[in-house]
Amino acid sequence: MSFKNIIATSENGIGKITINRPSKLNALNKETIEELHTAFENLDADNETKVIIITGEGEKAFVAGADISEFANFSIEEGAQLAAQGQELLFDFVENLKTPVIAAVNGFALGGGLELAMSCHFRIASDNAKMGLPETSLGVIPGYGGTQRLPQLIGKGRAMELIMTAGMIDAETAKSYGLVNHVVSQAELLEFTKGIASKIMRNSPMAIGKAIKAINANYKDGVNGFETEIRNFGKCFGTEDFKEGTTAFLEKRKASFSGK
């Protein structure tokens, strides 16, 4: 896959997307969001890709925010459309992929960058990472899901403070808040993340996809997460992966999952 603003590869079952705008601290513009959608869509459709890792190019930033120059003069209607299109095209899209997505946060993750990391299924940070939603300092609010996902991850009070102060937190604070799962050195970040990806790849891709649906259901208005779990639990019984997993367990051997 060839893109202008990102690099997308897949090797040994692990897809890797690198946001490649280091001169702009990997800021998100419309074109980059569209390219990210295409890359995620292609990797999710590739049966050989079991896990996707997203990171930023360089040592300074994962994504340092949105490209403000693109929307500084927008009207009310244009602003609402910007948020709606971005959420549908990228942030909600990533959250609901059947393929697990891990954010390897390698520096600043601010504004849209933190929102992108939060849309991933979980996050690992380098020890130099800084995270925050500074939108209120620009006279606007987070528009790519930040006001919804941040409270889900760190609690309402902490999210209120972080958004209202437009402040930043370091990687260890983010870990203590539950915003990231692990903190490692920048030199170790990608290999550590690949190590977790390898553990995920031992398990049933089909079951993982259904687990993502069930977990996400708990955070959707009007959806009963328990009912979603029951329905997807039942569906597992009709799959090749269930037959292989249970047979391998009873035969005391390692399962070989097909993802079907």
Score class of each variant (00 low, 15 high):
A103T: 05
G132R: 03
G111F: 15
E115P: 06
A109C: 03
A129R: 02
G113T: 14
M131G: 05
H121Q: 10
A104R: 00
K130T: 15
R123E: 07
E115L: 07
D127H: 13
A103S: 08
F122W: 07
S119R: 04
F122M: 04
G107M: 14
A125L: 05
A109K: 00
G113C: 13
I124S: 00
H121A: 07
E115D: 05
A104W: 00
H121I: 10
R123S: 13
V105S: 04
F108A: 14
L133P: 12
A109Y: 01
M131R: 08
K130A: 15
G132H: 10
M131D: 10
G107K: 08
R123W: 00
M118A: 03
N106D: 06
K130V: 13
L110E: 15
A117Y: 00
V105F: 02
M131P: 04
C120P: 03
N106I: 09
M131Y: 08
E115S: 09
R123M: 11
M118I: 06
E115C: 10
G113Q: 11
I102W: 11
S119I: 08
H121Y: 10
G111V: 13
K130M: 14
G107H: 14
C120D: 14
R123A: 14
A129E: 06
R123F: 01
S119G: 11
C120R: 11
N128E: 13
H121F: 08
G113V: 09
M131H: 06
L110T: 09
M118P: 02
A103Y: 01
I102F: 08
A104G: 04
G112N: 14
K130F: 14
S119K: 05
G112A: 05
A129V: 07
A103I: 03
N106F: 02
V105I: 09
A109I: 04
S126R: 07
N128C: 13
L133G: 09
S119M: 05
A103P: 02
L116Q: 02
F108P: 13
F108D: 11
N128P: 12
M131Q: 10
G112E: 07
E115Y: 08
S126C: 15
F122A: 07
R123P: 01
A104Q: 01
G112V: 03
A117C: 02
R123I: 14
A104H: 00
K130P: 12
F122P: 01
G113S: 09
K130C: 13
K130I: 09
M131V: 15
I124A: 01
A109P: 00
R123L: 12
I102Q: 11
L116N: 03
E115I: 10
I124H: 00
A117S: 03
D127M: 11
G113P: 04
I124E: 00
L116T: 02
A129H: 07
A104S: 09
L110W: 11
I124W: 00
D127E: 14
L114H: 05
D127S: 11
A129N: 04
N128A: 08
H121R: 12
N128D: 12
L116A: 02
A129C: 02
V105A: 08
I124Y: 00
